[in-house]
Design a binder for these strands. Structure first.
Lengths: 167, 167
DNA sequence: CCATTTTATGCATACGAGGGCATAAAACTG
DNA sequence: CAGTTTTATGCCCTCGTATGCATAAAATGG
C-alpha cells in the first residue's frame, strides 16, 4: 500500500466519520489491513492540511480541506513536488510562470495551493504551465527566486533553459 | 539538475536541432553544465518516447512525439507513475475508472498515453479521475487487473476502498 | 559481410523518501 | 495548575530510484 493510497483512505475516513485523534485513524486503517503508526498518520494529516475543530455538538473533530490558510501542508511536500516536476521558473512584474512536463502542471499547482506560501494570490494551471500571481508586496521576482530554491534550480541554468511559454 | 529538467532540455534540443546520436546530446548538455553520460541520455530518450528517422534530406535524426505507437515509453515509467499516484482502479464493461489525488490525473493519463499499453483505445482525464476505454477484445476487467498490478494494488484492498467516483 | 559506431543493459553505488521507535513538546481536561 | 493525552520530531533503517561504468548487443555504413 502506497503513501498516496493510504492518504486517500484517510481523507475518505475523515469525510465520513467523526474522528478526533491520529490513534483512531491508526485503528481504522489497521482494521482494514493497512499498517501505519501514529507518527506516520500525523505526518499524513499534516500533508493533507487537516485541522482540528469543535463541531456543533462541541465534539472535537479532524477535518480536511478549506483550511489551507490555517493549516498549510508542510513546505517539504511542495519542495518534493517542485523538485520532481518543475523544469523552469520565470517572472515578469508580479507574474511567475512555472513550466512542467505535459500533464504535470496540476500536481504542482495543487501542492502550491495547499502550501499557503506567503505572497501567492492565486494560480492557474494549464497542461504544462502554471501562472502564479504574486502579491504586490512580494513581487514576482522574489517569489520566483523562492520557487527556484524549492525546485532546486540555479538561476543560471534557468536562464539558459529559457523557452517559449505556453500551456 | 533533476532528471525532469534534463529531459525537458533534451526535448527542447531535439525540437530545435538535427541530432542523431545520444553522444551529441551528451555534448550539448555538458556544454551547458549539465552532467550526464550516454547511458543516462539513452534512458531519457526511451522515456521521452523518441524514434530515429531519416528526414527529407536523408539525414538521420532523433525526434520526439507522435511516435508513441512505434516507440512507447518503457512500462517502468508508467509503473512508477501509477505506483505513486493511483489510489484505486475499478471497471464496468469496457470502461476503467482510475482514481488519483486531486490534480494528479493528468500525470497518470499522460504516462498512460505514452506507454501504448495493449487494449487501451483512449482516455480522458479530469481532476482526480481518469476514464479509460478498453478495446472489446481486451475488456475493462482485464485492463483494470493490469492497472492494479502496475499500481501495486491488491484487488481486495481496492474493493474495500470503494468510493464515489467523480472528477 | 565486416568493421565501426551507437545503443542497451547488468551491476554497483549513492542518495532521497518513507516509516517506525522513542521521547520531547504541545494540547487538553478536570 | 497539574496530570494525562495527543502530536511532533530527531534519529535510524530500509527500500527504491537514478546514474555511471563497462561491455554486450544492435545498428549503421561502406
Amino acid at each position: 500500500m502506497t503513501k498516496t493510497q493510504r492518504q486517500h483512505r484517510i481523507n475518505e475516513l475523515l469525510e465520513r466519520e467523526v474522528i478526533s485523534t491520529a490513534a483512531q485513524i491508526v485503528g481504522r486503517l489497521n482494521a482494514e489491513g493497512i499498517a501505519a503508526t501514529q507518527a506516520t498518520v500525523t505526518r499524513d494529516l499534516q500533508e493533507l492540511g487537516t485541522v482540528k475543530i469543535r463541531d456543533e455538538h462541541g465534539t472535537r473533530r479532524i477535518v480536511v480541506g478549506g483550511a489551507s490558510l490555517s493549516s498549510p501542508a508542510p513546505l517539504d511536500h511542495l519542495r518534493r513536488m517542485m523538485g520532481e516536476w518543475v523544469v523552469s521558473v520565470e517572472s515578469s512584474a508580479s507574474l511567475v510562470v512555472v513550466r512542467t512536463p505535459p500533464g504535470c502542471a496540476h500536481v504542482v499547482a495543487s501542492a502550491l495551493d495547499r502550501s499557503a506560501l506567503e505572497g501567492v494570490l492565486g494560480s492557474v494551471a494549464g497542461d504544462d504551465t502554471i501562472l502564479v500571481i504574486a502579491s504586490e508586496k512580494r513581487g514576482g521576482e522574489d517569489l520566483a527566486r523562492e520557487f527556484r530554491a524549492l525546485a532546486g534550480i540555479d538561476e543560471v541554468t534557468s536562464t539558459s533553459m529559457k523557452g517559449n511559454g505556453h500551456g
